[in-house]
Amino acid sequence: MSLVSGLAALAVVAASPGQDAAAPQQRPEVVERLTACRAVADNAARLACYDAATAALDTAQQQGELVVIDRAAVNQTRRDLFGFDLPTLPRLFGNAQTQELDSIETTLQSASQAGEGRWVFRLADGSSWRQIDSDPVRFQNRAGQEVRVRKASLGSFLLTVGNSRAVRVRRQ
């Protein structure tokens, strides 16, 4: 796969420092220069344009001014951040081709009671969820139990361990 076609298969997520994060539709200048090379009619000039543009793109990526990730990495990042209130997340990752998450499924690593008898659930994916309702919770507190966290109304989340009743939680 050529560099140009490989770049076309990747998603540009973060732009150079001068880019406005609120406008993700705007491509970084370094990418615009690369795509502008297609319009060059003369073969030698077009090749020189591509060579210069790909060198600039490579430099921008190596210096951290540009981050290029594939769709699988975008979906994994969305999963890792599930439950956090990140208002800019849809602008960074929101397009029809990325996976929208309504729930995650993993296993219980541990659970312990915190203040006021509320539970803190630590999951195998590294996330930690704190009970925010005051209802009693009955579940098998054993590592490896299946856990599902799903979106609920008004921005809240419900966590279920095995076949237990759902517990209203917030990501920590």
Rank of each mutant, 00 (worst) to 15 (best):
E105G: 12
A21H: 08
G6Y: 12
L101F: 14
Y50D: 10
R165K: 11
N95C: 05
S5E: 13
N75C: 03
P90T: 03
Q63G: 00
A53F: 10
D80I: 00
S2Y: 00
A152S: 10
K151E: 02
N43S: 14
A39D: 14
N75F: 00
G162V: 07
A41G: 12
V137M: 08
N141A: 15
R46H: 10
R165A: 08
R142C: 07
V13H: 03
W129V: 01
T98C: 08
G64R: 00
V4M: 06
D51M: 00
A15E: 14
T88L: 02
L123Q: 13
R138T: 10
V167D: 13
R91I: 01
L92R: 04
S134Q: 03
R130N: 06
V12Q: 07
V161K: 13
S134W: 08
Q131L: 07
T77Y: 09
R138D: 09
A124C: 01
V4E: 10
S127P: 05
R142H: 10
Q113P: 06
V149I: 15
G162F: 12
W119I: 05
V30M: 06
V147T: 10
D58C: 02
A8G: 08
L123V: 14
A9E: 14
A124Q: 04
S110R: 13
V13Y: 02
A152Y: 01
A73G: 04
I104Q: 06
D125S: 04
Q131I: 08
A8E: 15
G83S: 09
L101E: 13
A41R: 15
V68Q: 03
V40W: 13
G6L: 05
T54K: 00
A152P: 00
P17N: 11
D42S: 15
A55K: 15
L159G: 08
C49L: 03
F157P: 07
M1H: 09
I132L: 07
R148N: 11
T106S: 08
A73H: 12
A36G: 05
L89P: 04
L159M: 09
S153Q: 06
R168M: 14
S2A: 01
T88H: 02
P90A: 04
G64T: 05
I132D: 06
A22V: 11
P28G: 03
R170C: 00
D135S: 04
Q109W: 02
I132V: 15
V147L: 10
A152M: 02
V147F: 13
D85M: 03
T35R: 02
S127G: 13
R78H: 03
A152E: 01
D125I: 07
Q61V: 13
A48C: 00
T59R: 15
V13L: 12
A39C: 00
R79T: 08
L3P: 02
E32H: 00
R46P: 03
L7E: 04
